[in-house]
């Protein structure tokens, strides 16, 4: 039997994350293209329950239930259990590039002695084996890389593929925990949830983003209103976060999140390179800015030169009118 493509999923609240279902979809298609079997691995508290959901995307999912993981930082244990399920001939091993996924991938690379190709937006079946596609320098270049020798680990960026279930659901195989994490355990003392239930920025289909031009925390109320009307969530530039108008969790860009929404609507955002790296792969980019020469004017699909508050309020009114008239 040739080696398997391995999809390492992530469990949150007894469900696979959306990113996990995206990576599973990518892994299934890659397996078909390479002519190799595909297997999913889910480790953690609630893995058994989550396995059935992930099996909608994959022919087979191995689950390792770890109820005590709730009291620990998960990555070392997840990596150790995953490593125990990977055979030497298996690969590539696909991991979602979430914060936990990056930690798992880094640990796996050492435990399995495998190289890493990071931050892929696609994985192709190249003539010399699996080829990871990524962008560098803030999207200026698209680089295709392969493994020299046996395939290793590929981390996959959120929203790189649309999750699509397989024709028929796969089977779930429960495995017993066997591995021990290296090093002293990192204990979790407490979990503080401030905005539980909010759509993660990386997963939002519509992101309404405020920059320096928003002028203050109160200015973001308009953005919240627009986001609600568009079925999206609010993001911000570093300038707005540094000014304390909105939390760091909402920051898009170089030292914040990378998003790939269907719609990016920027208000008072100049679109400098540090921000651009986090949003330029948005499908549609619309911007409102007083400055006709801001960088965003060069790569937006639609660029409105104007006052963000005047245009923003008019847009709220227009969207409400269309919603109420049912003409959209």
């Amino acid at each position: 039997m040739s080696g398997r493509v391995v999809v390492v999923g992530e469990v949150v609240d007894g469900r696979p994350t959306r990113l996990s279902t995206e990576v599973a979809t990518l892994g299934r298609r890659l397996g078909e293209a390479l002519g190799r079997p595909v297997v999913g691995v889910l480790v953690g508290a609630g893995a058994g329950e989550a396995g059935a959901s992930l099996a909608a995307y994959l022919p087979e999912v191995l689950t390792v239930e770890l109820p005590d993981l709730a009291d620990l930082a998960p990555a070392p244990r997840v990596a150790a259990e995953t490593a125990a399920l990977v055979e030497p001939e298996d690969g590539p091993i696909l991991v979602g590039a979430s914060p936990d996924g990056r930690d798992v991938a880094g640990a796996l690379s050492v435990l399995l002695d495998r190289p890493v190709l990071a931050n892929a937006v696609a994985v192709e079946a190249g003539p010399e084996g699996p080829t990871a596609v990524k962008t560098i320098f803030g999207g200026k270049l698209v680089v295709r890389s392969r493994f020299v020798g046996p395939p290793g680990i590929v981390t996959v960026r959120p929203s790189s593929v649309d999750a699509a279930p397989a024709d028929a659901p796969g089977r779930v195989v429960a495995r017993t925990a066997t591995a021990v994490a290296l090093g002293p355990p990192v204990r979790r003392l407490e979990r503080i949830l401030e905005t539980a239930g909010e759509v993660p920025l990386e997963e939002a289909a519509v992101v309404v983003v405020g920059g320096r031009g928003v002028g203050g925390a109160e200015g973001f109320a308009l953005l919240e209103e627009l986001a609600a009307l568009l079925g999206g969530t609010v993001g911000a530039t570093r300038a707005a976060v540094d000014a304390g108008w909105i939390g760091y969790a909402r920051q898009i860009g170089q030292t914040g999140k990378v998003v790939k929404p269907r719609l990016y609507l920027g208000l008072g955002v100049s679109g400098a390179i540090q921000h651009k790296v986090g949003m330029q792969t948005a499908e549609t980019i619309v911007a409102v800015n007083r400055d006709p020469d801001a960088p965003l004017a060069e790569y937006a699909d639609l660029y409105v030169v104007g006052d963000l508050f005047e245009v923003g309020r008019a847009l709220v009114a227009e969207l409400r009118r269309r919603r109420d008239a049912g003409t959209t």
Partner: peptide, 27 residues
Amino acid sequence: ATAVVAVDPPPARGATRTIRASAVEAA
């Protein structure tokens, strides 16, 4: 253990449409 196979420019985005109009028309 990894090697670059190809480096390409990203697919071009479409042209930008710029609007200068009243707030209501722009909306």
